[in-house]
Structures are given as structure tokens and as C-alpha cells.
Design a protein around this nucleic acid. Sequence first.
DNA 1: GGCATACTGTGAATGTATTCACAGCGTGAT
DNA 2: ATCACGCTGTGAATACATTCACAGTATGCC
Lengths: 213, 213
Amino acid sequence: MKIPDRTVERVILYRRRLRTLHAAGQVRIYSHELAGVEGVTPAQVRRDLMTIGYTGSPAKGYEVAGLIAKIDETLNPHQDEGVVLVGVGRLGKAFLAYFAGQANHLPVVAAFDVDPEKAGRLVHGCRCHGLDELETVLAERSVRVAFLTVPGDAAQEVADRLVRAGIRGLVNLAPIRLRVPPEVYVEYLDITVSLEKVAFFARRDARAAARSS
Amino acid sequence: MKIPDRTVERVILYRRRLRTLHAAGQVRIYSHELAGVEGVTPAQVRRDLMTIGYTGSPAKGYEVAGLIAKIDETLNPHQDEGVVLVGVGRLGKAFLAYFAGQANHLPVVAAFDVDPEKAGRLVHGCRCHGLDELETVLAERSVRVAFLTVPGDAAQEVADRLVRAGIRGLVNLAPIRLRVPPEVYVEYLDITVSLEKVAFFARRDARAAARSS
DNA sequence: GGCATACTGTGAATGTATTCACAGCGTGAT
DNA sequence: ATCACGCTGTGAATACATTCACAGTATGCC
Ligand SMILES: NC(=O)c1ccc[n+]([C@@H]2O[C@H](COP(=O)([O-])OP(=O)(O)OC[C@H]3O[C@@H](n4cnc5c(N)ncnc54)[C@H](O)[C@@H]3O)[C@@H](O)[C@H]2O)c1
Ligand SMILES: NC(=O)c1ccc[n+]([C@@H]2O[C@H](COP(=O)([O-])OP(=O)(O)OC[C@H]3O[C@@H](n4cnc5c(N)ncnc54)[C@H](O)[C@@H]3O)[C@@H](O)[C@H]2O)c1
């Protein structure tokens, strides 16, 4: 079953909202309620849930707990898997701090940096290694996903090495497009591009716009 | 002339690459060269340039300098405009540091935080104000775009206030969807969602994937 | 000068995403 | 029991984005 990129993104948003509602004691939800919160149409919500194969009932809507379970099962069929972060600079440290404070099912299990100053230290509870240990740690922890927060001119080189070490997914914060083999998925978070885009659309009469990232 | 979201994004990437090439002395470029670097097809590049109304010549390709000028003119028809940042936390500080080191045509002209500790201080060369000065500063500098790096539970409230103060575009880093009037454009940079998406696609056989953000 | 080349510009085709619109149904009201 | 309601699930329609494919053409070469 193939789930399109856009749908995956929205389903992740639904899940986040559903968890909050579940914690607040809500048992059922209608497509238009979820839609309202996430800024999409009810039809889209129904189509998305159909895509992941979850079925509600016309009179009662969707069961919050059941839907969360279905999403978990669809998106995270395996055990919690660790991710790593390469480039413990300002941005990298902010990320480590942020993820340290979260009970995530995708914990950051290790960080890496060329700077020998940083090797061996704990940064917000996350062990920072020298680059020489990269292959070993990745293999030990069987990590498949990495954050890339190194300077732009080191990014390709580091990405190559990560891919060789078995990484299959990258969240790239460096302002360059990476060349990777087709089986590696890259998500680009390009802050400068986002800013320029917003500056452009802020000028014209933008549609409310949703789109995540 | 309406330029689609996706095209704007790619054009911004082309411009970044073109600036590097121009600095390196390259005078002309073919669609397939630009495409190769940015991970899109040559046909797409040509279509994008057609959309912004730039014309090359079959034998010589596109003129690097002319194309940059055309993109600038299309995307940034006005003078350099300042942007502001609200929420001088870990992420906000990283951004301020980053943009301070760049000669950007979208300079961060002011920052804001509720924390009285931060008010009045200079953070990486950027003046940090208390929230009470928000309306005044925005009006003075006629700022239309803002970064939102406050905690999730403050984001909606701050966004409302920014919109009331005249903001027309937001780059939102907080993990919630904002309710804003339709004339306000919001770009979501949701790091957790990106991570989860990558974790999902890293598992299946991902297509090389481009997509920015 | 004439010709072969390799590109661009673009209509048309294809592919993908979203929305419409409605049949069908379980529920709660009566 | 029966009915009316308001929801879901989904085929079909639409809208949007990408790619194909090729005519047209400026250039450099001989
Ligand atoms: N900070 C921001 O707000 C911001 C905004 C937009 C983009 N970015 C991008 O994010 C990336 C990181 O930004 P930053 O501000 O944290 O930079 P930074 O300079 O603070 O940190 C970069 C870190 O990477 C390390 N590093 C350098 N080369 C490395 C290598 N080959 N292997 C491993 N580690 C290496 C450095 O030692 C440093 O600790 C950059 O590509 C930057 O362009 C940052
Ligand atoms: N740090 C990360 O790597 C990371 C990753 C993903 C998402 N985020 C999101 O980015 C946002 C900022 O993250 P952070 O790590 O910088 O948090 P932080 O707690 O370090 O910083 C938040 C800042 O916002 C200020 N603030 C709080 N309420 C405010 C208000 N009403 N008006 C103005 N300022 C206010 C606080 O004083 C603080 O300085 C959060 O929404 C967080 O969820 C951060």
C-alpha cells in the first residue's frame, strides 16, 4: 500500500492533535472537527483516513484511540528507532535540547561533530562523539535516520559518509541540495528559502495556505 | 501573473545556485545544468523560467546575470524589507546568529520576547524588545514578515497580535497550525513532523525525492 | 554562405492531489 | 418500530503539477 508524501504529513498532524484530545478525554471525533483544527477540508481528512485504511462510523465518527493506534501501526510498524544528529553547532544544540525534553518515539541516541572540543561531552543529555566513531555507533544502534546540521560546505561529504554507513533517511538543515542514492529519502528544511517564500507571498494576496514541512 | 508555490520555491533555489556560479565567473547556463544541481528535470527548469517570464536563447542557454536580475525583480520587487523574530529562545537565538552572519536582503531588524531578562539586550547584534514595543517597532519599520519561535502554547496568541499589528507573512516554528486570516501567508517548519516523515519513508524504498520547505 | 547541432519554448499528454456530491447507514428521537 | 438526520466512504470530476516531444532557431563549423 503506497501512501503519498502529503498524506503522510497530514496524518502525522492528525495524530498529534488526536493525542492531545485523547489525553483530554475525547473519545470520538468527526472529520470536520479534525479538519477545522488542521486547516484542511473534511473530505481530505476522510480521504486520508481511507488511504491508511481506517474506518469510522457515520453516526459516531472516528474513535480517537483506535485511530491513533491505526496511525501508529501504519507509520511506525517497528520498535522505537533511534536517530542521530551530525553537527553540534547552534542549531544542533537547540535540537538536542528540544528533543531531550520530549518523550519521543524517535529518540536522538547520539550526536557527532568534527570539533574535538565537543567529542566525549554530553550535550543536553546526549553523548557527542567524534566523527571517527560514526560508523561504529550507527551499526551498534542500527540507526537509519539522521539530522544534518553541519555547515553547507561539509553537508555533501557528511551525507555521503552517513549513507555509506547505512543511513536511509536524512533531515537536512544545510542550505544545499544533496546528491544521494534513490533509496535514501531526504527532507529539506531550508529556513532561508522559507523566509524568502513567505516574503514573496506576504506581498500578494495569499490564500490562507496550509502546507507543512 | 500568478506564480505557484512550488515554482517560487524552486526559483529561489535556482537563484541561490546562480549567485554562486555568477561569483565564480560563469556567464551562461543551460536548463539541464541548473536541473542537475537542484535535483529537478530540465523541462521543469524551462517551465519555471517560462512562468517568471525569462527567455534564454537556444544556442547559448540562459544568461546567469540576467536571470538573477529577473528573479530578483520577480520575487523582490520592492526595496529590502526587514523581518522580525518573536521568541528569543534556543531556536530564536540560533536564527539570530545565523542571519547576523549573512548579507541578506531580508535582514532581521528586531527581536521580541516576553522574558524581561532579554528586553533591551543585543542578541547577536539584533536588538531584543519587550512585547509591549511590538506594535511600535513593526509600524516604524513597516515590517510585514515575522519568524515565530515561541513555545507552542503561546504561538496562536502571538500570531494574532502580529497579524493585528500588520504582519502579512509568518514563518512558524512552533508545532501547531495557526488560525490566521486568509490574506496572511504562513509557512510551517515543523521539525518533529519532518523527522517522523523521514523515519516513515526511510523504511520503504523511497524515491530520491526532492521537495524543499 | 550553408548546414548540422543542441538547445529553448511550449502545446499536449500524463500523472497526482484535492474536492464534489451523493448513496448508504447507524443512531437517537419520537 | 419507524423515521429523519448527519455522518462516512467513495466514484467521478476537477484542479494542479510535471513531463513529453517536437517545431523553431541561433550558433559555430566547414
Ligand atoms: N543556525 C540557524 O539558524 C540556521 C539557519 C538556517 C540554516 N542553517 C544551517 O544549519 C547548519 C548548521 O548551522 P549552525 O548555525 O548550527 O552552524 P554552526 O557553525 O553553529 O554549527 C556547525 C557545527 O558543525 C560542525 N561541523 C563542521 N564540519 C563538520 C563535519 N564535517 N562533520 C561534523 N560536524 C561538522 C561544527 O564543528 C559545528 O559544531 C548550517 O548548514 C547552516 O547553514 C542554520
Ligand atoms: N529548539 C528546537 O530545536 C525546536 C525544535 C522543534 C520545534 N521547536 C519549537 O520552536 C519553538 C521555540 O523553541 P525553543 O527551543 O527555542 O524554546 P525556548 O523555550 O528555548 O524559547 C522560547 C522563547 O519564547 C519566549 N516566549 C514565551 N512566550 C512568549 C510570548 N508570549 N511572547 C514572546 N516570547 C515568548 C520565551 O521567553 C523563550 O525565550 C517552540 O514552539 C518549539 O516547540 C523548537
